[in-house]
Design a protein around this nucleic acid. Sequence first.
DNA 1: AAGGAACGCAACCGCACTCCC
DNA 2: GGGGAGTGCGGTTGCGTTCCT
Length: 334
Amino acid sequence: MARSPEESGLKKGPWTPEEDQKLVEYIQRHGHGSWRALPKLAGLNRCGKSCRLRWTNYLRPDIKRGKFSDEEENTIINLHSVLGNKWSAIATHLPGRTDNEIKNFWNTHLKKKLMQMGIDPVTHRPRTDLNILANLPQLLAAANLSTSLMNNPWDNALRLQSDATQLAKLHLLHNLLQVLGTNPTALPQTWKQATSLEHHLLWTIKPTNLAQTLSSIPSFVPPQEPGFEYQAMENSKVCAGNNNDGDELGSLYAIPALVSASPEPSTVNQKEKKIEPAHDISNPSSTSTTFEAWGELMDDEPSFIFAMANLIINLGFDVKKIMVHFRVGFTYGY
DNA sequence: AAGGAACGCAACCGCACTCCC
DNA sequence: GGGGAGTGCGGTTGCGTTCCT
């Protein structure tokens, strides 16, 4: 049976500068070769494994140290949603970062951040635990507030604390709607208010940040609850950079448009956003079959991207920027 | 100022995989 | 094909630092 380093009289724990220097000098001269043989040759009282770890996680010359950038952060989140805890695979997309460093960063920062946004860090989908109901009073208060601010959504957006906060609310609301969706007839008024708030939040997020937030959440799922309905639009155009080019690509990916059940903001391409009465929310069975179109899109990432882009165009946002962000999120792993 | 709690990160542990004999 | 050595990887631990009361 193999003896542990301690039993063999080998040193464990933090490395001293002298040990680091010996290891670096040896590898610079001879390469690491066999890690098992290295410590003896380099004059180190460590096991080979410890030397390998110290080199790959700390002493390697190409290691980038310091704070993770926002771009790196988004990349990690996106890759994690696709790859899971495959830290070494994720690390290959982040030059200079080690799997260990990424893993630590995930566990200490990103996990918490996603949870605070109401996103399950494992599934990257909205959390569905019932604890979110604790947020109901705040959400409803915000819903009431929103109805008094509907006249100028862009102005309203600026009044809100931050887009991150909005997104967190949006996710919470998704969760809430999912929970309530198990019995929507029980709280019809609550449902209306919640639906109204969710839609308001969606309308009032600033375009650039919408792109960033959406791209950071590849599994972002548009509302599919009773109270929303999606309809085919007559003039759907999806063309990066030019909303007026009704080209074939755009037609190919034209998608059902989002139609709100709630009162709409009065601006932002109002003519393109059909406002129709809600389904009878007391009757979940009346849910339109057009929901299924979105369901299918969710299984097809490129279609989903275009679907979201179409929605965004109809809101008057800059689809080019948004598509760039989406690509960051969806290119990896496919 | 002091003590405890929380946090962040380097390092370790043990399992799994690949390669070679 | 089987077994051992070497290596890679993800999970966990331990400890120094920072924050909070």
